[in-house]
Amino acid sequence: MAKRSRNSCSTSSESKVKSSFDAAEISAVYCAIAERRDVRHFVPGPVDEDLLLRLLSAAHQAPSVGLMQPWRFIRIQSAELRQQIQALVEEERQATAAALGERNAEFMRLKVEGIRDCGEVLVAALMDRREKHIFGRRTIPEMDLASVACAIQNMWLASRAEGLGMGWVSLFDPDKLAALLGIPEGGKPVAVICLGHVDAFYPKPMLEMEGWAMRGKLEDLVATDRWPDNKIE
């Protein structure tokens, strides 16, 4: 797969910001959104260092409440540490399966992570000492988590545009992962991110392909002036 050139869009505060994008650029944005996939299947091979830096830079350009930038990314380069993270995920996979009751066996057939196979593993976490940031969080403190999610989505879309697979793994005990990585009290891991090369991207979300769930209809999730009348389980 050919390596994409460095993003030519300037981020300098002294640069003139575009007022609009041309048709091809607009189409590319919507294409990346539509074809983004939560990837679990990778092929071996390292991720280019310049590409990784571009992806992290894309994440760092995300919006954040009060410009607090609550994201912290930990790059996992120790093979032993990667194995320990995978073991934590497997422990939670078993616990989740037990909690699902009659869907236990169906869940156990799903591939829920690619930690051992991907080229790079990152852990995205919330910063510690967040309580001092009240701008935009006084009544909705969860906005710090929303900000981290925006950073992860930026990375996801940039990865897809670069032709690199990315998966967000959330099956782990956050306290155990925090202890493993030395995250200070108040900080919290929210995602194990797998990055790597792929043979191909899934034609549609993997959980749809596996029959686990289907994407809901937009018209069922949008209402005017008040909560929608339709009942969605």
Rank of each mutant, 00 (worst) to 15 (best):
A2F: 00
S5P: 05
R6F: 15
R6N: 07
S8E: 13
S15D: 15
V17N: 02
S20M: 01
F21I: 14
A23L: 12
E25K: 07
S27A: 13
A28R: 05
V29M: 13
C31W: 02
E35F: 00
R36G: 06
R37M: 03
R37K: 04
R37G: 05
V39G: 02
F42C: 01
P44R: 01
G45W: 01
G45A: 02
E49T: 14
L52Y: 08
L53A: 13
R54M: 15
L55Y: 00
A59Y: 05
H60I: 04
H60V: 01
Q61M: 14
M68C: 15
M68Q: 10
M68P: 00
Q69M: 13
F73L: 08
Q77L: 06
E80Q: 13
Q86S: 14
Q86E: 15
L88Y: 02
V89R: 00
E90V: 03
E91T: 09
E91N: 08
E92F: 02
R93P: 00
Q94R: 11
Q94V: 15
T96I: 08
A97F: 07
E102R: 10
N104M: 05
M108I: 03
R109F: 06
L110H: 09
L110T: 10
K111G: 05
E113T: 02
G114W: 04
R116F: 00
R116L: 08
L122S: 09
L122D: 06
L126E: 02
K132N: 06
H133C: 11
F135A: 15
G136M: 07
R138T: 11
S147D: 14
A149K: 00
Q153E: 14
N154L: 07
N154I: 04
W156E: 02
W156R: 01
R160I: 06
A161E: 13
G165L: 03
M166A: 14
G167I: 01
W168C: 09
F172L: 11
D173P: 02
K176G: 06
K176V: 07
A178S: 04
L180Y: 00
L180F: 01
L180P: 07
L181H: 07
G182Q: 09
P184E: 09
G186A: 09
V192R: 08
I193H: 03
H197M: 05
V198L: 06
A200W: 04
A200T: 10
F201W: 10
M206K: 10
M209K: 04
G211I: 09
W212D: 10
M214Y: 00
R215E: 13
K217W: 10
K217Q: 14
L221P: 00
V222E: 09
T224D: 07
T224V: 11
T224A: 12
P228K: 04
K231T: 12
